[in-house]
């Protein structure tokens, strides 16, 4: 029996192996993805981002449990940084998710970022497609949490939770990092620490200065993930945001935007690959660069000429 057949029969082992095929782009993975895309579309995707140590894993640890208790079929993806030098990675998020009830069928998968810098691995959004097709209805994705601009999450999620901690300057930091723009909900975690109220206040004032584009007022929730304080409140806001997106039609709109980008990316990548294979193989670029360096050509004219050659064959 093939992995795909076993997957359809509900085998978690097969799901897990298919994820590896997707992650490693092994032969045939695109064909599988094509099929999986057509059977999904029901899973709700929640992203958790924020600086390292803010408590993202600890929050997911609680939220995934609450969702499972509410009867959802829950999956979790957590991304950790891969070393740019060795490619190795220590995937430690799972260690902080010990309270997730695995006996309720929660599926957790750790991924190395493998050279991506946008907060997720290149394969993460494809992996979500497999989870969706498998029948999970709720997904939590934890980003790497080291970059300043981890914006991949916008294209892979429906609701984005930004986790911050009451360290001084964090609200300003969040502003600078563009986190204000992407947050649907703020969790000010480690509320047991000094400065938590101040942090909530700073965020509130910062949000009030932001131009308002929607009826959704971004909630700011003070949480203590480890002591399990106020997590039900955070969970309620997640549910409310989902209901808001559904009621206003924004969910469908958001997903349509994401799909547009996805199709565009597939197209651009195909063209890129074709160009690499045909137009740019051999020493074409070396020759051009030689001419430019001798003052006989320039990057703009050369690039345009190559484009004409690619498109019109002359």
């Amino acid at each position: 029996m093939s992995l795909y057949t076993e997957f359809q029969g509900g085998s978690e082992v097969a799901l897990s192996k298919i994820i590896s095929h997707i992650e490693n782009r092994r032969e045939g993975y695109q064909e599988v993805l094509s099929r999986l895309y057509r059977t999904g579309g029901r899973m709700y995707r929640i992203g958790i981002t924020g600086p390292p140590g803010a408590g993202k894993s600890s929050l997911v640890n609680r939220l995934a449990g609450l969702a499972a208790e509410a009867g959802h079929r829950v999956a979790v993806i957590c991304v950790d940084p891969s070393s740019p030098f060795t490619g190795g990675a220590l995937l430690g998020d799972r260690l902080r998710m010990q309270d997730i009830p695995l006996d309720k069928g929660v599926f957790i998968r750790s991924m190395g970022s493998r050279g991506s810098t946008g907060g997720l691995a290149a394969a993460t959004s494809n992996v979500t497609v497999a989870l969706d097709a498998f029948g999970f209805d709720t997904l939590f994705i934890e980003t790497v949490g080291v970059g300043q601009m981890e914006l991949d999450i916008i294209d892979a999620c429906d609701t984005v939770v930004v986790a911050l901690v009451p360290e001084s300057g964090d609200a300003i930091q969040a502003l600078k990092a563009g986190l204000m723009e992407i947050a649907d909900i703020f969790a000010v975690n480690k509320a047991d620490r000094a400065g938590s109220d101040q942090m909530v206040y700073d965020l509130q004032s910062a949000m009030e200065m932001k131009a308002v584009h929607s009826e959704w007022i971004v909630p700011i929730v003070a949480t203590q993930a480890t002591a399990n304080v106020n997590l039900d409140e955070l969970y309620r806001h997640l549910t409310a945001h989902k209901a808001y997106l559904e009621k206003t039609g924004l969910l469908a709109q958001k997903r349509a935007e994401q799909l547009k980008k996805k199709v565009e990316r597939v197209l651009v990548k195909s063209i890129q690959r074709d160009i690499d294979r045909t137009l740019l193989n051999g020493a074409v670029l070396d020759d051009i660069v030689g001419r430019i360096m001798r003052g006989e050509d320039d990057p703009y004219s050369a690039g345009q000429a190559l484009f004409r050659q690619y498109k019109f064959g002359s």
Binding site: E12, V13, S16, K17, I19, S20, S82, G88, A89, L90, L91, G92, R94, L95, Q98, L102, F107, I108, R109, S110, G112
Partner: peptide, 22 residues
């Protein structure tokens, strides 16, 4: 890529993690 699951894991937890993480 190394996944460390921490202390005091039961065989159940270890096997579940091994399968999910493939």
């Amino acid at each position: 890529e190394v996944i460390y699951t921490g202390l005091r894991q039961t065989p159940e937890q270890i096997v579940t993690a091994a399968i999910q993480e493939d």
